[in-house]
Nucleic acid binder design. Structure first.
Lengths: 220, 220
DNA sequence: TTTTAATGTTACAAAACTGTAAGATTAAAT
DNA sequence: ATTTAATCTTACAGTTTTGTAACATTAAAA
């Protein structure tokens, strides 16, 4: 979504984006910007701070209360001052006019890469293989199947998910579950792992958690 | 933390940073980079991709599995090609050599601003006033006080926190709590709100949740 | 001021969660 | 092949969580 008052630049930008396989929307009704953004839910916003009727910074601030849609700020101020810095509060990137088209594309690509998931404030979903994990509600969905995790199961699964690449030791898990792992039965962890595995099995993930005897567990 | 092989540039950078009230560490042992980073836990990393012994991209990828410490990629490739784009996977920003010191400072400031919290994979903390909310464990801390929320309380509190600026309707809360709000007693929500309020009171937040009769609730 | 609908509180029982213990299974080491 | 330590499974009981119902309070409307 392009938010920019100079029509010439708008069209130029839209053409550039469309030539590079992006879909471009030009926002016209500046006064209703926030609602338009939230309704259209663009993947990324190019926001000129110097547009009439609205204060770009304020718009960004208000937007950030509702959503983390990536925003690249466009400014015609060429100075490298604190002013330019302040612009970037809450923005994912910024670029100064006149911009080099290739650099702009590069930055758009980079921002999209690093924010490609989870930019709605309320979705806390992580993805693993084909399943979706809502770490807020503790629900895992796969196709039309769904399981509900308890708090402990959630903590374990989140941790394994965040460390997919390596073996997670039992001690680590004990620590994140109970902090002072001395007061709780060693077996409590094993039982919780067992319960988690049973639930994962329900949605077809028979061997998701792999035991490495003497070392720990790993998501496989 | 500066990861860069040209000593001249290293020192120049360190001086620049220190003159601007940052603390600079220069990484020497490239082969042990990942461990050093994780141990020293810098607030931000300036990473040159073209350093001997390690592949900057691979290092970034491995780092990203463990932590979201902000990384600004430094590249001497001046071309605006896909190559440069690929560099930015997982990086928070990138800059090409030779860089303008002021622009670099600007970018460092911007990256720090937008990532100032939560760059460890495992902390899910949101902040509201003086309290810290770990949405993973459902724990709210204020000073040395601490309360533990149940799943329902967590869902409500998270939602209010993510919509601090506006009134949240009872219907919205019913929907996020029970999806099909018809099967559950209207009063169940009221009771859950009540329980949440009691807990918040325990840590000194007497009137955190404000009732707007006929409209909903708002965090005040 | 009185009425009314919305929201709050409390107590309670059903359901879910969780650590323990006892015995079973497994993989590595001898 | 046997032993051993690590990990698993199951049943159980104490604890926590949760929706309901009955009654209380509040703010807005009449």
């Amino acid at each position: 979504m392009i938010i920019e008052d100079e029509e010439l630049i708008c069209n130029e930008l839209a053409k550039l984006l469309e030539n590079n396989n992006y879909e471009a929307i030009i926002l016209k009704d500046f006064k209703n910007a926030l609602n338009e953004i939230l309704e259209l839910a663009p993947d990324l916003i190019l926001l000129d701070i110097n547009i009439p009727f609205i204060n770009g910074e304020a718009l960004l601030q208000n937007l950030r209360k509702e959503s983390n849609i990536p925003v690249i700020m466009v400014t015609s101020i060429n100075s490298e001052t604190d002013e330019a810095l302040s612009i970037s509060y809450g923005a994912d990137d910024y670029i100064t006019k006149p911009y080099n088209p290739n650099i702009l594309l590069l930055r758009i690509g980079a921002v999209l890469k690093r924010t490609k998931t989870n930019y709605n404030t309320n979705t806390n979903e992580l993805t693993y293989k084909k399943l979706k994990f809502d770490s807020q509600k503790g629900i895992i969905k796969r196709d039309d199947m769904e399981i509900e995790l308890t708090k402990n199961e959630m903590i374990i699964f989140s941790y394994l998910l965040n460390h997919q690449n390596r073996i997670v030791t039992r001690d680590e898990l004990m620590t994140i579950l109970w902090d002072n792992s001395e007061y709780v039965n060693e077996n409590a962890l094993t039982v919780n792992i067992s319960r988690l595995r049973n639930k994962l099995k329900e949605i077809g993930y028979e061997n998701a958690i792999d035991t490495r005897k003497g070392m720990g567990y790993i998501l496989s």
